[in-house]
């Protein structure tokens, strides 16, 4: 049963994204929100972990949080899908349940 995971922490300050990746099953979806969006950028110390995880997990990032933080979409890791709030809602519908990694 597919699960949507939300991650709202920067990977440079806390290990939440790492925990999520460790405990998400193959085929799950992960949406990066709030400070979690910093984990979606390439050429960072967290990029390799995310790129490796993308072999098994689908990654999304919330556009309003990206824009608020001045993170241009050109800086995102290839293959991460940008969604707005309606896309976020749709992800919660398309997956059977939601786990928030607080």
């Amino acid at each position: 049963m597919p699960m949507l995971h939300t991650v709202n922490k920067s990977p440079f300050e806390r290990g939440v994204l790492e925990s999520c990746i460790r405990l998400a099953t193959k085929g799950s979806a992960v949406i990066l929100i709030e400070d979690g969006v910093y984990g979606a950028t390439k050429a960072s110390t967290a990029s390799a972990m995310v790129e490796e995880a993308m072999k098994d997990l689908d990654f999304y990032v919330l556009s309003s949080d990206l824009k608020a933080r001045g993170v241009d979409e050109s800086r995102l890791i290839d293959g991460i899908t940008v969604v707005d709030y309606s896309g976020f809602v749709k992800l919660t519908v398309d997956n059977d349940k939601v786990q928030s990694w607080l």
Binding site: M3, L23, A24, K97, Q99
Partner: peptide, 15 residues
Amino acid sequence: ELAEIMDQQDVVLSF
């Protein structure tokens, strides 16, 4: 194992 257990749930509450 934990990942599988978490996957089988209906409602996940976190704090």
